[in-house]
Design a protein around this nucleic acid. Sequence first.
DNA 1: CCGGATCCCCAGGGATACTG
DNA 2: CAGTATCCCTGGGGATCCGG
Lengths: 217, 217
Amino acid sequence: MRSYGQYCSIARALDVVGDRWTLLIVRELLIQGPCRFTDLKNGLPGIAANLLSTRLRELEQAELIERHEAPPPIATTLYRLTEAGHALEPALKAVGLWGMRYMSTVDRQDTFLPQWLAYAPAWFTVDADPEAPPVVVQLDVGDAHAVMEISGGRVETHVGRADSPDLVLNGPANAVLGLLMGVIDLDVATQIGLTATGSRDVLSRLRPIAESAAHAS
Amino acid sequence: MRSYGQYCSIARALDVVGDRWTLLIVRELLIQGPCRFTDLKNGLPGIAANLLSTRLRELEQAELIERHEAPPPIATTLYRLTEAGHALEPALKAVGLWGMRYMSTVDRQDTFLPQWLAYAPAWFTVDADPEAPPVVVQLDVGDAHAVMEISGGRVETHVGRADSPDLVLNGPANAVLGLLMGVIDLDVATQIGLTATGSRDVLSRLRPIAESAAHAS
DNA sequence: CCGGATCCCCAGGGATACTG
DNA sequence: CAGTATCCCTGGGGATCCGG
């Protein structure tokens, strides 16, 4: 990207990460950890291979990521965030929090990956009642499955299924995540296809982070 | 901008404000208030007029800004942020906070405008001692002049000069702002051309916001 | 002078194919 | 699997011009 040539920290930041796809590459590395080239390509539907290659080179030069030749049994190069790259997390969260206003609808064309089902609650919701006993929520959106563990003030998530969840939320992405993120309420979510199986009152355990509370992890 | 086509709030946000210049236009409207076309063009050195025109149209369609036909004596159209546009402030602050790491050096080519001298301390520093009496700091970088009023826990700024400041900081942009933002210390700032006239101990009144504390105003 | 519109040129992005 | 090479096309930059 051409530099804006301004002595302003916002413009300087955009000089480094303002290019198309760049912040989404950082997003994938933040939520997935160190990735192979192919992992990144799969996590960024639509990106051209040459462009990913170019971006990775630029990010490495900017010292936001570093290549790491993993020994067997991996035996391939992994890309991982440096400290400076990891420091983008608060900025990405703030941007994502603002973008939440566009999450109430979903287009048929939109791609949706399991890891996004997992990271969204982890980044943008908190346990509203830290003293209460732990609960587990299973999220199912098509073929994407994730588990939320709400406990001690924190919400932790991972891709996959739970053994005996207290609640199972199933439906289209905007119904499940829209409800969790607080952009739609339970009535609307149900209307657009949400089915909630189990104890619905665990939903009150979850509080979406308000914009005014955007902050570092 | 082409849509990323992902059901992810970060990707959705970038669909709207990820284009070149877009976030900087929002920055100008945030720090300047409602602006004329020419004000924006002047505040964004290097932008082509047609591109500014295009971006303003896109931003209006996205309902982040709105045109306002101001009556005489202004008698021209003003562009101002809507609620949704204003809601970008936390995200811009978080991005700017991350970009602070690139503020220790300044290139001769870099442009620097008086309003940036004013907004940076207001956005990225706080009064470390709210109980102490108010102090006034004058900032001079070339032809750019700004005033900081540190009082009651807050740091307020405006472009211009103060009558009887408690401290005057003069020097290149990276010396003055780098010092205030905490990216360089007083010794280094002095080495690269800072002159501090008045009571230097008022500098201790100022605390740069740490990354972990990035939050809404 | 303000608020654009038009035109031309080039860099950057997208799609596909190909290679070590 | 991990990229590179190629081609095409869109979008951005710069200058100029035009109506109010």
